[in-house]
Every structure is written in structure tokens, then in C-alpha cells.
Design a binder for these strands. Structure first.
Length: 267
DNA sequence: AATGGGACCTGCGCGC
DNA sequence: TGCGCGCAGGTCCCAT
């Protein structure tokens, strides 16, 4: 479940530690995580290239390379990047010119590595909604206007707005005091403004604390992020609401576990 | 357009 | 105790 704050945390750490270094070799332990091209071409295409630029779009990490190609990394549920690598449970290991390795770990193999000519051409990128931090309240309200879906699945829709997953959708809606099952179109102008504000606030705060380590997210150095202790609803079912003391509920919405306070977030 | 389901995966927690 | 089952969720894809 790495979402925008977790991927941003990793991106910033990568910039400090591997930017400008050369990939001197690639060891593939689990070919299934390499989505394109085939393993041999993937290894060959990365051999000897320098990492020129590191970007994030939504939850996707992009390393631009001296060859003109890019390495796109999606961590999906359980993907990790660890530097310096320790070789433990690594699916793919990148040897760098500093003698250390960058390890890609992924227990469940949902993660995706792609070596591509132009990352702008990725279908995922072409359909991707705007970055929360590059959006104005007016634009956000406008995008919300015609939507008939429930607000929580909509926030998680990467084509609507990028970077928000199950965890931060729950946290944001609690802070905006909006019930996750509300139809998006039913939100008042004030609620839309507050929601947008809380999206930015929550993501910013989570980045400050370097992400939420529930499940398997770790920072580039292998250590957990610190934001879990600030969660107000996620994974807190049955526990007292930090505002009103009522029990936090968990329901299924769009097939996903959804946490909220029935008192603070009424229908 | 929206919604629901399955697929991809594996480790964990639960019930019996 | 041990086993089998369901669940967890990011994204894509298909069906309705």
C-alpha cells in the first residue's frame, strides 16, 4: 500500500543517495516482476547507464537514464526499494558504481519494473489524474462536479486524482468529516473545499513523517515510516474515535475495507 | 458512466 | 496442534 507519501519519501531518499550513479549490473531473482522488456533485454538495457533524474507521478517512481530510456517502478502492495541492499528477499538487485546495491523486494509480486523508451507513453501515465499538489481548489471542485460515484472510491481513482489509496482516502475523509459513502455530487461547496484542503494537509503531514508503515512499507534505508501513530481511523475498527470516543467502524465500499466514525462522519 | 467481479500474488489470522 | 480457507489491496480487464 505505498501511496503518494510513501513513494515521495522513497523518491527523495533516492535523489540523495543514487542520483548520478551508474548501474554496473542487474541480478534478476524473480523475472515475473519485470513487465517489459524480457529479462535479458532488461538487464542489457540497464547495464552501464547513469541515473540522470528521479521523478514521481502518482504512486509511480521513474528513473530517467543516460540512455534516454526510463526505469518505471510501481511498488503496488508490498514492493520495497532498499539501499544499500542487504540481499535479503530481493527480487531484483541493481549493482551501482559505488559498490552498493539497490534492492527491489516484493513479497507478493504485484510490483512492476519497466524499462521503456518514453515513460510519457505509458497507458498508466496517460490516464493518470492530476497531482494533488498541482491542483487548485477550483479545479478540484470542477472535477468533482459531474461525478456520480461515492466519494471514497472516487478519491482512490487514480484517473480522478493521483496518489491517494485506501489508507489516505480514509484519513482524509475523517478529517473533512465526510462519510465515505456519500455521493460525490452531494457534497456542498464548503465540503468540497474542506476536502481538498485536508487532502493536501494529510498528504503533506504524512510526507513529513515519512509515510505509514502498515504491512510492508519501509523507507529506502529499510526503516519504517512514522505516520501510523497519527492515523485517526485506518485500521482502528472498534477503537474509540479520537474526537468523540465512539467506536470506529469498518465497512466494505467498492470491495475495499473502509474505516470511519459514524458520529463524526454522518450520512 | 458506473459498478462489480476476477485476476494477479503470498502471508497471515481465524475457525474448527 | 494443524490445516484450510478467506482476506488484504493497486491496477487492469471484462461484463453488465
Amino acid at each position: 500500500m505505498p501511496e503518494l507519501p510513501e513513494v515521495e519519501t522513497i523518491k527523495r531518499a533516492l535523489e540523495k543517495s543514487i542520483l548520478g550513479k551508474k548501474i554496473t549490473g542487474v541480478i534478476v531473482y524473480e523475472p515475473r516482476v519485470i513487465r517489459e522488456p524480457k529479462k535479458e533485454a532488461f538487464i542489457k538495457g540497464l547495464q552501464g547507464v547513469t541515473i540522470k533524474n528521479i521523478l514521481r507521478r502518482g504512486k509511480l517512481l521513474i528513473l530517467e537514464l543516460s540512455s534516454g530510456k526510463s526505469l518505471a517502478i510501481h511498488l503496488k502492495m508490498t514492493g520495497q526499494l532498499v539501499y544499500p541492499g542487504n540481499g535479503k528477499a530481493s527480487r531484483v538487485s541493481f549493482k551501482l558504481s559505488d559498490g552498493k546495491t539497490l534492492d527491489f523486494n516484493d513479497q507478493r509480486l504485484f510490483g512492476e519494473l519497466r524499462l521503456i523508451d518514453n515513460w510519457h507513453d505509458l497507458k498508466f501515465i496517460q490516464k493518470l489524474g492530476p497531482e494533488p499538489f498541482a491542483l487548485t481548489p477550483e479545479e478540484f471542485k470542477k472535477r468533482l462536479a459531474e461525478k456520480k460515484t461515492k466519494i471514497k472510491p472516487l478519491l482512490m481513482d487514480q484517473n480522478f486524482i493521483s496518489g491517494i489509496g485506501n489508507l489516505y482516502a480514509a484519513e482524509v475523509l475523517f478529517r473533512a468529516r465526510i462519510n465515505p459513502a456519500r455521493p460525490a455530487a452531494s457534497l456542498s461547496g464548503k465540503e468540497k473545499e474542506l476536502l481538498f484542503k485536508e487532502i493536501k494537509n494529510t498528504l503533506q503531514e504524512a510526507i513529513k513523517y515519512q509515510g505509514s508503515s502498515v504491512d510492508s512499507y519501509v523507507k529506502l534505508n529499510g526503516q519504517p515510516g512514522n505516520y501510523v501513530k497519527y492515523h485517526k481511523v485506518y485500521d482502528r475498527q472498534g477503537k474509540p474515535c479520537l474526537v468523540c470516543k465512539q467506536s470506529i467502524q469498518r465497512i466494505a465500499l467498492g470491495g475495499r475495507g473502509t474505516y470511519f466514525c459514524p458520529h463524526c462522519q454522518p450520512r
